[in-house]
Structure formats: structure tokens, C-alpha cells
Design a protein around this nucleic acid. Structure first.
Lengths: 195, 195
DNA sequence: ACCTGAACACCGTTCAAGT
DNA sequence: ACCTGAACACCGTTCAAGT
């Protein structure tokens, strides 16, 4: 139960972009994507709906910002890692785990095919560097980059989906799926690096 | 330019579910997903918005029906094909092509992780039969089924995405991507069938 | 600069009523 | 059975105005 913030008229709400983002992630975690509307967000912040537009240009921009913010949690290896193919593998595994930690966002990553903020670009640069050290450069590298991203998000979507027989006492399913994803990654990276 | 159908008051529109579906696919092809609303659909059919609910239970059901209808175009091999792994490969390639022919729908397949109508089930049965003949049965088969589907839809989404440098005079990109998808399929099927 | 009330231009869906 | 007008319960966003 979230009580709306009360202010005397004329008093500033003192919102920041970070506060709006945080509240949006809270709504997402508590009520899911469908309930994340500018109006419920404003209500939670004790503010008029249109006030949000002083801090965020649009709802789409807000969601893009959330998607990128989540990617900050991805554990990226340094681009100078000893085995670049293993580095790529590790990076995608970490991304997969982060995506699974935010199931509501996975369809949004799918729809946008990734994120587009500074965290996304940082990860992309690391991936390109690792690919380059595997001998994959230029347009091939950009293609490989996106294939790896789509593969990872696609698998996360698969793992996030409601299973046919929902059973909480089968943690093996998620673990098996993770192994399956890891195996698929191995094939894909081998193929990309011309194994 | 689509002119609304005119009827004298009291006259039946004579809609059918098939007509609604067809009009929806027309709107999709001409104006894209964003403009596919129950209201524009009704307008095109010369009918009040709520009249559609005499033929379709909800907009979600309408979209599900469209998704499944499109899958009728997939060229499925017989389950008794000589080489079952090759049959799987061929089936996924055909699905990929069909998905690419309807770019607007790809995000919806992604969001729903496939379709759920009779065409989808028919294809699923063929896939399960082929997997069974590869020695993959039971829960493993259902998992492999979904991995193949997610992989295919994910790749289609990748191919459908607006490229960084849009250039209509580079048909190679799509062809290369197709080859890339086909190679990924080979790895995946080999892994699934324990190669 | 930040926030507001009011409005604009929409949605999907339901309901009671007509034929 | 099929279709309607009217309404319900919402959306995202813009605008002019207040402080």
C-alpha cells in the first residue's frame, strides 16, 4: 500500500529524473508493466500526471531509461581478458541473469532489441573489442553483436514465459534452461569466430 | 484510400469473423500495428466499434487469430521425412521466411512466444514427431521445441529491425542474415540431437 | 524551473435497446 | 443474431497559467 505524498499548495514536489525512474521501477516490480502508466506514476509521486514531463520527455524515453539502467548490473569482463571467446560467453551469461531478474522488462527488451543508453553502448563496445580479438571486425562484428543480443534476449523471454505446468518445486527447469542457453552460446560463438 | 461502407439504417452489415480478420490484416499491411485499433477497424468495415464484439471476443483474441492464420503459410515437411534433422531445419527456415513476410507481426510473435491456434499446434506436432525420430522425447522435446521457436522468432526480429544504415540497395544483408540464421540452426539442431 | 487544472484526442469494452 | 448509441473507465500528451 503506497500512500500519496501530501504537500501544501504551492509547495514544490522536488522531483528529479532519478526519482521518477526509481518510482517507475517500483511500480513495475509491485504491479507489473500494465499498471505502469504516467497517471499511476504521478499518483505515487503525489504529483499531477503532466508534471512528469518536466523530468522525462515521454513514456517511451522513460522506459528506455529503465531498460538501460538495469543493464548497469551486467558484469562485463575487461576487453583485455585472456580468452576473448570465453569473455563473450561470460558477458552474455551475466546479461541473461540480469534479464531474468526483471521478467517484466524482457518483452520490452525484445520489442526494442536491446537498450540504447550509455550502459548498452558500454557493453556493446566491450563485445566489439572481444569480437575483434577473435578476428571478427567491421560489419561482421556488428552483425555478430546483434545476433548474440537477440539470442540472449530471446532465450530470456523463453525462460520468463509461464511454463505449461507451473510448479515452483522444480528449480531444475530454470537451471537446465540456463545450461541449454550456455550450450547454445558455445555453438553460436564458435560459429561466429569461424570454428 | 478506403471508403467506409454505406448502409441504409436497419440493414445488416453481414460481418463474419473471417471478414474482420481480413480487414485487420489489411489495416496492418497498410497502416501498421499502431493504427490497428478496434475503432479504425470498425470504421473500415462501416460498422460501430462495438459491433466487432459480435464476431471477436477481444482485441487480443483477434491478434492471436491473425498470428495463427499467418502460420498456415508455413511449408511443413511430412513427419516421415527421410532425414528428420533436415526436416526440422527446413521447417524452421520456412517459418523464418513467413515471419519476414509480415514484419509488423514479428514483435507480437515475440511477445507471445509464438502462436496458439490450430496451425501452431499442427506445426508443433510435426516438430515433436521429427524430434522424436531424432531421439529427443518427453520434456526434452518440449524444451527443444520452444528453443527452436524462440531462436527463429528472435532472428526474425533481428532481421526485421531497422538497420543502422538503411540502404535499400543492399539485398545481401538479408541474404547474409538468412545464411547466418541457417548456420545457427544447424548448430542448435546438432546440439539438441546430441551431436 | 517546476507544477497545476483543464482539455485534446484518443483507447478497449460493456450495457441496454432496437430490429 | 446482429448492430446501435451512449457511456464507462481509462490512456499519453499539450497548453496556458500560476509560483
Amino acid at each position: 500500500m503506497q500512500v500519496a505524498i501530501v504537500r501544501t499548495p504551492g509547495q514544490r514536489a522536488g522531483l528529479t529524473q532519478a526519482a521518477v525512474l526509481g518510482a517507475a521501477r517500483d511500480v513495475l516490480a509491485e504491479h507489473g508493466l500494465k499498471r505502469l502508466t504516467m497517471r499511476t506514476l504521478a499518483q505515487r509521486l503525489g504529483v499531477a500526471p503532466n508534471s512528469l514531463y518536466s523530468h522525462v520527455p515521454s513514456k517511451d524515453a522513460l522506459i528506455d531509461a529503465i531498460l538501460d539502467e538495469v543493464l548497469a548490473e551486467v558484469d562485463a569482463p575487461g576487453p583485455d581478458m585472456a580468452d576473448p571467446a570465453a569473455g563473450l560467453h561470460q558477458l552474455m551469461l551475466s546479461t541473461y541473469r540480469v534479464l531474468l531478474s526483471q521478467p517484466d522488462l524482457v518483452p520490452l527488451y525484445l520489442a526494442r532489441q536491446g537498450a540504447r543508453g550509455q550502459n548498452a553502448y558500454r557493453l556493446g563496445d566491450v563485445m566489439l573489442a572481444l569480437l575483434g580479438r577473435c578476428g571478427v571486425v567491421g560489419p561482421d562484428a556488428r552483425e555478430a553483436l546483434r545476433v548474440l543480443i537477440v539470442f540472449t534476449i530471446g532465450f530470456a523471454a523463453f525462460a520468463t514465459a509461464a511454463p505449461d505446468q507451473p510448479s515452483a518445486d522444480l528449480p531444475l527447469a530454470g537451471e537446465e534452461l540456463f545450461d541449454n542457453f550456455s550450450a547454445g552460446l558455445t555453438w553460436l560463438i564458435a560459429g561466429i569466430t569461424h570454428g
